[in-house]
Write a protein that binds this DNA or RNA. Structure first.
Lengths: 246, 246
DNA sequence: ATATGCGAATAACGTTTGTTATTGTAGCGT
DNA sequence: ACGCTACAATAACAAACGTTATTCGCATAT
């Protein structure tokens, strides 16, 4: 008898199914995963640089980010994560964390033991391929952020990030009408894009003055999607959103 | 009867064995892979953005890099690759290329059909995990480059890249005594690190003036490893070089 | 009511880095 | 020997962005 489905496995199945269609076998195997759900406060580390993790986490609710602290209080943020993401899936095959992961808002997180994931992926290569693919999309986003920091102006980089986040949120039903909640401070935006908080503020003012966005109280509204996405040369190919055949 | 080992499968076996110890079964399966070897000239595209690739390539000899062209002739280089690397392994699970791959020198490349790799990874989950891990290290290097572009000075970023390349080359026996061939122009360094070629030249002069390196004719010599690696805060953890248990 | 703290907004000033241009040098083909 | 090309070196100038500091608004706590 299969266990009753619950929120965590539902979320995971929906996630993987959005990457590549799951078979019934695969679905049932996921439903049997031993999962622990925990609520977390905002700003809490989930895993920390140098940790040797024994589990992966699935973000059920709230936002998180991966980051690294440098000398002189500098910080680099590598990614923002939204519900449905598995931000530390890489820890399944890289024993020691080379960065940290923390919540940006109060969050709900499901933990899945590495051992269970290893059994699952060894038994069902289709699931392994799907999870592998998820980490490859992750890397594709890293590359796009590199382009942003290396070869885009601050204004283009911020616009590009806003477009990226909209497309990702829209894909999981968390945004529509070019509007979404963005629980990220200007300092955090700067640490993600390699800018100072002051300059982020300047650029946001410019985007507002040009009637491209409104942004207040954590709510972002893209007033002119066509203009904003053209301004930064946004092309969603790198998000690899189309569902893949099995 | 197993096929006679050849240079390509040897290289691949050595590569994977350096990541996680291979079993005899796995070794033999790799030796049965259908591989095509081709010599390439310098500056030749191996795969191009928007391509749908049907094979992965293993770099047997020479250097390559992944890059993307932007508007106004701008270019972002995402990675440099050396013999033993599989620079487009991601194409196994991401149907359409979001960037290009080209040679930086005359090179020898082995091509492995996706179909064969898919069969191999479906039959032998250990190999799948090893290849997966390779792409995860790739992503870890992307993150480190993000840190370089976002939160390091031009001088630190260049120094960090020189340290990274030395450690990678040394690990595959292509460098020793803090010296190696670096077949990369100053413009290419700039496109990798988000700098102009002029500024790269300035920084190289500074590094030379400070007796940290010599660089001429494509040969780099790190004169003071301790000082150079300290200057940029180099910590090789992110390269995940230690061999993993199976 | 007051204090406290975090994030946003803004100003003045400094510096790293980009841009454009010119020159030098080495290799390579004819 | 000659020209061609790619790469490196250097200078002068401009611009984007960082730094430091102050103020404001707003929420939460006391």
């Amino acid at each position: 008898m299969a266990l009753a489905p619950n929120h965590s496995t539902d979320m995971l199945i929906r996630k993987l199914d959005s990457i590549a269609r799951l078979s019934d076998d695969e679905r049932q195997a996921i439903e049997r995963l031993p999962i622990t759900v925990r609520p977390l406060v905002s700003g809490q580390d989930i895993v920390h640089e140098h940790d040797r993790s024994l589990q992966c986490c699935l973000l059920l609710d709230g936002w998180a980010c991966r980051y690294q602290l440098l000398s002189e209080g500098k910080r680099q943020i590598f990614s923002f994560h939204i519900p449905g993401d598995i931000p530390d899936l890489q820890s399944l095959h890289l024993q020691v964390m080379d960065h940290s992961l923390c919540t940006l808002t109060p969050a709900t997180v499901a933990f899945i033991p590495h051992a269970a994931l290893r059994d699952l992926t060894a038994a069902l290569p289709g699931i392994a391929a799907t999870l592998w693919r998820d980490t490859l999309v992750d890397a594709a986003v890293f590359r796009e952020w590199m382009t942003g920091m290396g070869r885009r102006s601050a204004c283009e980089a911020i616009a590009h990030l806003f477009c990226e986040l909209y497309v990702k949120l829209e894909a999981v039903g968390l945004a529509e009408n070019h509007r979404y909640r963005l629980p990220v401070t200007q300092a955090e935006l700067g640490d993600a894009l390699g800018l100072s908080n002051v300059h982020v503020n300047r650029v946001l003012k410019e985007l507002r003055d040009n009637k491209l966005i409104t942004l207040h109280g954590g709510g972002l509204d893209i007033l002119d999607w066509a203009k904003l996405s053209k301004l930064c040369g946004f092309d969603p190919t790198y998000l690899h959103l189309e569902r893949q055949a099995a």
